[in-house]
Design a protein around this nucleic acid. Sequence first.
DNA 1: ACGCGAGTTGATGAATTCATCAAGCCATCA
DNA 2: TGATGGCTTGATGAATTCATCAACTCGCGT
Lengths: 137, 137
Amino acid sequence: MNSSTRVDEGEALWSSRSQRPLYEVKAGLFKGLAHPVRVRILEVLAHGDDVPVAQLLSETGLEASHLSQHLAVLKRHRLVASERRASQVYYRLAFAEVADLLAVARALLTEVLDAARTELAEADGLPALPAADATRS
Amino acid sequence: MNSSTRVDEGEALWSSRSQRPLYEVKAGLFKGLAHPVRVRILEVLAHGDDVPVAQLLSETGLEASHLSQHLAVLKRHRLVASERRASQVYYRLAFAEVADLLAVARALLTEVLDAARTELAEADGLPALPAADATRS
DNA sequence: ACGCGAGTTGATGAATTCATCAAGCCATCA
DNA sequence: TGATGGCTTGATGAATTCATCAACTCGCGT
C-alpha cells in the first residue's frame, strides 16, 4: 500500500475535509467491518442497546484486551459509541444504519450461499438440499 | 498468495458445508469489499450491466493485471460474474443485493460523515457548513 | 491513600493483503 | 501458422492487520 497516499488508520473514515473520494471512504467502512470479532460485536449491539463490556466479554469469550482492541477499531470508524457509567463501560451502535447494513449483508449472503450450494449440487448431480435458514445472526 | 495455512481466500465466502459461523462468513464478505478499487469496480458495475473489462480499465485508469486481480477477488467472493463474448470479457454484479449493500453503505456513510462534520464544527465553535451531498457514487 | 476490578493502550512477531512485474492463455486477424 | 490485442495467473517484497503480553488509567470500596 502506497505510503504517501496513506492517510488511513488513525482517522479511519472521515478525513477532516473529506476530499477523499467516496469509494475510498466506503472501502474504509468495509475494512472496519472486515473481521469476525467485529461483526460479532456489532450483532450483539444490534440486538440489545447499551451493552456493558462485561456482557460482550462473556458473549464472545474473548480476552479483555483483544475485545477492547476491536472495540477501539469500531469506535475509530464511528460505528459504535461508548459511555462510562459508574465503573462499567457501555457500548451501543452509533447509528441505526449499522444494523441495516448487517441486515442487508445477511440478505446478500443468503443469496450467495444459496446459489453456491445449488451450483455444487448440480455439479455433483445431486438434488438440492432443503437449505438451512440463515434467518438468525 | 501463500498456500499452506490458508483455509481462506480460495473458498472465500462459503466453505463447502457452511459449518462456519455466519459472522465469519459475513466478515469475509466485508473483507471482499474492503478495498477502494473493488468498491469502485462494483459501483461501475452497479450502473451499467455487462461491462467489458476495457471499460473498467479506462474508467479506473488501472493497469490491466492490477484490475484483473481485484476482479478475481470479487469473483472468488461471488459478488460478480463474468462471461466471455468473442474476444472481450464482460462483468456484472452476481446479485442485485450487491448494489443494495453499496447503497446502504452510502446511507450509513452519509450519517457518519455528517455527524463527524458537525462534531468538528462544534469543537471549533464554528457554524456547521451546508454539507456537500453524497448522492452520487 | 491503597488495593482492585474493569477496561484501554502500547509494543512486537506472525499472518495477510497489496502492488508490481514477468509469463501465460485465448481469440482474432494477417 | 505466427503475430497481436485482451486478460488472467504466478511470484515476490513491501505495507497492513492480527493476536498476545505487559503496563497503565479510572472508579470504588476500605
